[in-house]
Design a binder for these strands. Sequence first.
RNA 1: GCACCAUUGGUGAAGUGGUUAACACGGCAGAUUGUGGUUCUGUUAUGCGUCGGUUCGAUCCCGACAUGGUGUC
Length: 370
Amino acid sequence: MDLKFKLIKESSGARLGEFETKWGKHKTPMFMPVGTQATVKTLSPEELKDAHSDIILSNTYHLWLRPGEDIIDKAGGLHEFMNYKTGPILTDCGGFQVFSLAKPKDISEEGVKFKSHLDGSSLFLTPEKSIEVQNKLGADIIMSFDECPPYPVTHEYMENSVLRTLRWAQRGRSVHSKSDTQALFGIVQGGEFEDLRRLSAIKTSEMDFDGYSVGGVSVGEDAETKYKMIEYATAHLPKDKIRYLMGVGDPVDIVEGVIRGIDLFDCVLPTRLARHGNAFTRDGKINLRNAKFKEDFSVIDNECDCYACKNFTKAYIRHLLTADESFGQRLVSIHNIRFLTKLVEDIREAIDNDRILEFREEFINRYKKK
RNA sequence: GCACCAUUGGUGAAGUGGUUAACACGGCAGAUUGUGGUUCUGUUAUGCGUCGGUUCGAUCCCGACAUGGUGUC
């Protein structure tokens, strides 16, 4: 399915864009919270909407195992099943999960053999199977099944991996049965190697997917390497298609990614950090469980318009977190998601005003000062 | 009054005549990037009720005292 991506403006490498799904028009750069098991942990669809989140990511591997794609299909698809009716859903292919569960010897050209994290049973996932499951889940955007190599690996290893991911992309594409309603993305790999990122980007683009993901980033490399990986990939991707940087969501990384031509981000960070008591603020990340907030009756961020910041103090939220009350995790999740949706709103405005580089300077100086 | 038992960190407690007093919880801090829904890592008693004694050396043995518990007149 064509997402009708429109590149509205390009400024200092950053792109202001728009794409369309049956849920409406969506502005990029955009951030997606992660709802692995058909829920963004602790949050209702209403709360997501209130936090200005217009799209979520869910996961093929987890839903395939439980409750199973057939049940979700019978429910009428993911949107119906989880009653998320305000925006698009993107499903990850499951590769990332499967590779973390597989032994090297169990990775073959055919697919990946691995053990279920639920009951230890032996399972096999192939590029075709991943697409079939995603077809049944019914997300608006689905991912090709890619190989997710560890970091670091040799150039030779990575080259073979990139070539295999290309073959897998072709195989998945050939069984994609819902191309009228589901957009399919190809994934660029290649690690930190410029020639392999280029090869991967060019060859994947030749397959003419509805959008392109940049994978294998933020896997343990240093910041400089991370940003190069992104540049090497986006340099060779078509300008008229959307680009999605998989799994990256640190606020600074989002800004740096945008400047390197990324349109779409997803990350578990806002919700995972929230569950562990950490909140994003313009002045850096804070740990709300810290004793210094015991009697701090101010809000997390008085510039924030989220439900938590409009109604509750840090002292109260700290109490909830310390007492293991789920409402505390929910409030911080709402805040962290709103922080990132506001960040991309500000980024879009900065691109529109041709001041994204100044924005980066100001944002990073304040976020990292401490 | 007498007899017996007990006394270890914020809590529950283990332990030994000899360098750093186990473990758990709690506390304090850190981590987290295509999800670990309560995770991971680090740290947290210069001291074993008090005062003496024995000993090269005592939280551990002995005595007195303090506090608590049980039994008994």
